[in-house]
Design a protein around this nucleic acid. Sequence first.
DNA 1: AGCCAGGTAATCC
DNA 2: GGATTACATGGC
Length: 325
Amino acid sequence: MTLLHLDHADTLQLPVTGDGPFNILHTLWKPSHYATGLEAHTRESSWRTFRVGDLTAGVRLRYEDRTVIADIHTDGDYKPHHREQLTARLIASYGLDEDAAAFTALAEQVPAMREPLAALAGMRQSCPEDYFEIAVIALLLQNTTVSRTTTMTRNLLTHHGKLVHFDGITLRAWFTPAELAAVTAATLKEKDRLGYRANSLPAFAAFFTDHTSDELAGEDLVEVFQEIKGVGPYTAAVMASHASRDPSVFGIDVWNRKILARRIFDAADADPTAITRRMNDLFPGHAGTAALYLVEHEYLNAPVAPLLDPAGIGAWNQALEATAA
DNA sequence: AGCCAGGTAATCC
DNA sequence: GGATTACATGGC
């Protein structure tokens, strides 16, 4: 894999237009998210890659005066429609136009939400992934350890994605569905160590090669997505709560099940349907947002992928570039 | 060694 | 329908 250098092409000023508090640090960086190499965060700046149509973009994000400033770097012809697509993608990915007031008002009434709210108020769901990308993430999380998920993600991105450098940072970038469709199940199993997932990933690539995100908008996606082999209730709910940004939905798995059981029932574990019912009772219409706050608060003091010290960026770059040789 | 991981589909009754 | 089981792999 070669290291692709991206040049500065644009600067977008994205005002935060939603009501309520806004927390830039925890909107961009989630303490519970495992390391993918697709993004990097310091306290002052975040860097993230996006695949937008034919374009590979590297974005640095900063925040001042209730405005997100996005410096766009690209590998090729940057056209006006790219600017439009990226603007829409960034606003949606980080919920810059979403209100936090309704959830905050609900959360203030619930004792279990006191500390999470104090620490994280104004955090939005973050999902820079599109439907295909978040489906791949959810697939790699199914019935395995995060350590193995991290390995499989690294294998896929190293073997089939891109490695880019811009604004002093090196990051991985996703493959597109069409690019992944060219990879055989045998390769996914033997080279990328995906196990039985090797048989479902090609179905994901095929589905999203045939269906663009735009034409899926408006469908009942939780139902539609489950027509893809390998997508069940959990993966579909992750897609809905993250990429569709439905604040009422959350995918329940053995990981957040235990976190939520402890936070709302003071129990080590609980029945998934009981948890879902209780979350919906406590936070009508906002159970997904509530789950997000409870889970991120759980990891706040022991992040899975900690913030980067600016002095550590050199070592970060070297580690990623070592996989390029 | 055996069990379990941030599930899903196939196969039972 | 709900309950049961195989599915790959790696870490503890």
